[in-house]
Design a protein around this nucleic acid. Structure first.
Length: 302
RNA sequence: GGUCGAGUGGCCGAGCGGCUAGGCAGAGGUCUGCAAAACCUCGUACAGCGGUUCGAAUCCGCUCUCGACCU
């Protein structure tokens, strides 16, 4: 059985059943579960992020869940660093580690790596945001067109976030964003086995609906209410919370929030699928067919 | 049986002779430091048949369906 290390990455849309599947898997391989879910890191958010329950958390070693506060700034690059460090430790003890979560970019940062980029002064972004709010999208478009025409040609020119990032990099480094976008896949000291979990769309949507009802039942509104005063924080720009904040501000009634919570979760699931579907390395399974997945893994890992 | 009203894309809904409303739901997509975010694209439907007209979802006739009222 050699010294080969394996990271089993389990991805898929929200509510497809990643948590319970990973728990079984962790048990079988005596492996830890690393989260690559951009919202489950935060300890102040619970219900709305569909974290594993305390009981589930106790039944296998979990990493990164509840590791951060919503008050902290946290981004993919930091996550990549943290994850690689952690994986090194975990692989020293175990040849198999599981990673799961719904955030495609975060998973990719670990498996493929992000392009090298120096630290930027956070003040730069703050300034750019302020300028954008004052002068609008046209301003961003003009700036990026000037400092990085190459990137300007391929970005979503209507997308302020992308434009701001390009500008931020330019102002912080003096070089166009394009120069850094080498998209070179980094070789990791472990093998990655990518498994996608998927179900028929209707079934997935029914699960999303049921789970949202359960979250509400469990007190999602109270949780969001308690965080209301912090709703400006980035971590709270999150599906499930923003809708309730708007409700608390009186933008619509209770029936409408619930409708939006469900609808937006469905749309989120769809976006996740779009993201993951383009990764040809992912093998897709219905989580109901656990036996098939285990056979496949056995084949890969031995 | 009679009288009147209505029938528009999955749903709601405007149009009432020529200029493909709109909303909701849905689908597809983009993606390298805010990512559960941000952004982009997509529906020629007017109950059926016939007629009038250069031209009909819009006017006329018949048929069908639904609703209301009358006997």
């Amino acid at each position: 059985m050699g010294t080969q290390k394996f990271l089993i990455l389990i991805v898929g849309p929200t509510a497809v059943g990643k948590t319970s599947f990973c728990l079984n898997l962790a048990n079988r391989y005596q492996a830890g579960i690393v989260s690559c879910d951009s919202r489950q890191f935060y300890r102040e958010m619970d219900l709305g992020t569909a974290k594993p329950s305390p009981m589930e958390l106790a039944s296998a070693p979990h990493y990164f869940i509840n590791s951060r506060s919503i008050e902290e700034d946290y981004d993919v690059k930091q996550f990549e660093k943290d994850a690689i460090e952690l994986l090194e430790k975990l692989f020293a003890q175990n040849r198999v580690v599981i990673m799961t979560g719904g955030s495609g970019l975060f998973a990719a940062a670990v498996t493929d790596g992000l392009d090298e980029m120096q630290e930027l002064d956070p003040q730069i972004r703050r300034e750019i945001i302020a300028e954008y709010e004052l002068k609008g999208l046209t301003f961003l478009q003009e700036e990026v067109k000037n400092c990085d025409p190459e990137y300007f040609k391929l970005v979503d020119q209507q997308n302020p976030q992308r434009l701001m990032r390009a500008l931020e990099v330019y102002r912080g480094t003096g070089k166009p964003f394009s120069d850094f976008r080498v998209k070179q896949k980094i070789n990791r000291p472990f093998e990655v086995i990518k498994i996608g979990l998927e179900r028929p769309r209707e079934e997935l949507y029914a699960r999303i609906e049921r789970r949202m009802d359960a979250m509400i039942e469990a007190g999602l509104f109270d949780e969001a209410d308690a965080l209301f005063s912090k709703r400006h924080l980035n971590a709270l720009q999150t599906l499930g919370y923003t809708e309730i904040f708007n409700f608390l501000e009186g933008k619509y009634d209770r029936e409408e929030v619930i409708r939006l919570l469900k609808r937006n979760s469905r749309r989120y699931a769809k976006r996740q699928l779009t993201w993951f579907k383009r990764d040809a390395d992912i093998r897709w399974f219905n989580p109901e067919n656990e036996a098939d997945i285990l056979t496949y893994l056995k084949d890969q890992i031995g």
